[in-house]
Design a protein around this nucleic acid. Structure first.
Length: 320
DNA sequence: AACTGGATCAACCGCAAGATG
DNA sequence: ACATCTTGCGGTTGATCCAGT
C-alpha cells in the first residue's frame, strides 16, 4: 500500500535489495514456496530469483504472504485478552503466543503489544500528577502519598509487561491527587487496556487450559461480569485509602499482575513473568489462597511505608 | 486546509540455536 | 570437535495513516 512511496535501498554493492516488496518479488517468492516449500530461503538469492537475503524472504513469507493471515484485520477483544493472558504467562514470547492465534504472526502480536504499552504509558503519564496540579488541587506535598517519588512513565520502552503493570500500581496511587472525574476516566481507559472489554473471565482457569493443551485458538470459556474486577479506585493510597488498596489483593487478576510486577519494581529488566515454579497453576493457587485467606495475606504484606525504601526510578531526562 | 501527534505496520538488525559439512 | 551456514526470534526503527485541533 505504501510501497511506491518508500525508498528502495541497496547496499554498497548494489546486490542486496532492501525496503518494501514489489508485486513481482512477491510472485517470485510465492513461486519458490510453491516449488520447494517454505524453506531454503537463502537459495532464493543464490538461484538469482530475488536480490533479497534469505532472512528477508522468510520474513516476507511469514508476515505477509503466508496463507490464512488476517492482514489488515484489527485484533478482536478475544484476541487481545488472549495475548494479554499469554504474555503474562509466557513473557515476550511472541512467536509462541502467536501460535495460539490463527492468522496472527509474531510480528502482529509484538506490534499489538507495543502499541498497548505506548497507550498505557501515555495514559499513565497524562494521569501522573504534576506539581502545578497538586497545587491546584490544594494538596500540599507533605500530604502526598509515599508514592510521590515515582516518576511518570513515558518510558521509551518497557522491557516487559511487568514494568507496565507495576507502574500501573504506582501510578494509580500517585494519580490520587487528580480531579476525580479525570481520574475516573483515566482509570477506565487503563482498566480497558489492561484487560479489554466489559467482560472478564477467570484468568487462572484460562491459563490452566493453555497449560494442559496447546490449542490453535481458544475462545475464553468463562465469562463473568467485568464488575467483578474492582474498578481502579484512585483513592486507595495510604493511610485512609489503604483499605481499598489492600482489598485489591482479594482479586485473583490483580494478584497475578502484581505478582509479575514485583521483580521489575526492584530493577529487574527482564524476568520470566511467571516462573516455572510460579507457573499458571501455581499462580492460580496463590490467587485462590489469597482469596480464601485475604486476612493472612494482608497481614503478611509489608507496611506501606516500605515503599519509602524503594529508590525512585530515574527521571525521564535520565533515560537515554 | 494545514498541522500535529499518536497509532499502526512493515521491515530491518543482532543474537542465539540448530543444522550441516 | 569445530566452523560455517541457516533459520527463527525479539527488539527496534522509520514511514505512513489518521483523527483531532
Amino acid at each position: 500500500m505504501m510501497e511506491g512511496r518508500r525508498r528502495m535501498i541497496y547496499d554498497e554493492m548494489g546486490e542486496i535489495k532492501k525496503g518494501p516488496w514489489k508485486e513481482e518479488e512477491d510472485r517470485a517468492l510465492l513461486n519458490h514456496v510453491k516449488k520447494y516449500g517454505p524453506r531454503d530461503w537463502s537459495s532464493i538469492r543464490s538461484k538469482g530469483l530475488l536480490q533479497r537475503t534469505g532472512k528477508s524472504c522468510r520474513l516476507r513469507w511469514v508476515n505477509k504472504l503466508r496463507p490464512d493471515l488476517k492482514n489488515g484485520v484489527k485484533f478482536t477483544v478475544e484476541e487481545e485478552r488472549t495475548v494479554i493472558d499469554l504474555q503474562a504467562q509466557f513473557g515476550n514470547k511472541w512467536a509462541r503466543i502467536a501460535t495460539y492465534l490463527t492468522g496472527r504472526t509474531d510480528n502482529d502480536v509484538k506490534n499489538f503489544w507495543s502499541s498497548r504499552q505506548k497507550r498505557l504509558a501515555r495514559i499513565l503519564q497524562t494521569s501522573a500528577p504534576s506539581s502545578s496540579r497538586s497545587h491546584k488541587s490544594g494538596i500540599k506535598d507533605s500530604q502526598a502519598p509515599v508514592f510521590h517519588d515515582v516518576p511518570s512513565i513515558e518510558a521509551p520502552k518497557f522491557s516487559s509487561s511487568t514494568e507496565e503493570e507495576s507502574v500501573t500500581k504506582s501510578q494509580s496511587c500517585s494519580s490520587s491527587r487528580i480531579h476525580d472525574s479525570e481520574k475516573t476516566n483515566k482509570m477506565e481507559q487503563l482498566s480497558d487496556i489492561i484487560y479489554p472489554s466489559s467482560l472478564y473471565y477467570d484468568s487462572s482457569l484460562f491459563q490452566l487450559d493453555y497449560h494442559l493443551e496447546k490449542k490453535p485458538f481458544l475462545e475464553p470459556q468463562l465469562h463473568v461480569p467485568f464488575s467483578h474486577i474492582p474498578q481502579f479506585q484512585p483513592d486507595f493510597c495510604i493511610p485512609v485509602e489503604s483499605q481499598e488498596f489492600v482489598s485489591r489483593f482479594e482479586d485473583p487478576t490483580f494478584l497475578d499482575v502484581f505478582g509479575h510486577a514485583s521483580g521489575s519494581v526492584l530493577g529487574t529488566t527482564q524476568l520470566p513473568i511467571v516462573p516455572s515454579s510460579f507457573g499458571p497453576t501455581a499462580s492460580s493457587q496463590v490467587s485462590r489462597s489469597a482469596v480464601s485467606m485475604p486476612d493472612t495475606f494482608v497481614e503478611d504484606f509489608p507496611p506501606m511505608d516500605m515503599f519509602d525504601q524503594i529508590e525512585p526510578l530515574p527521571s525521564p531526562s535520565q533515560w537515554s
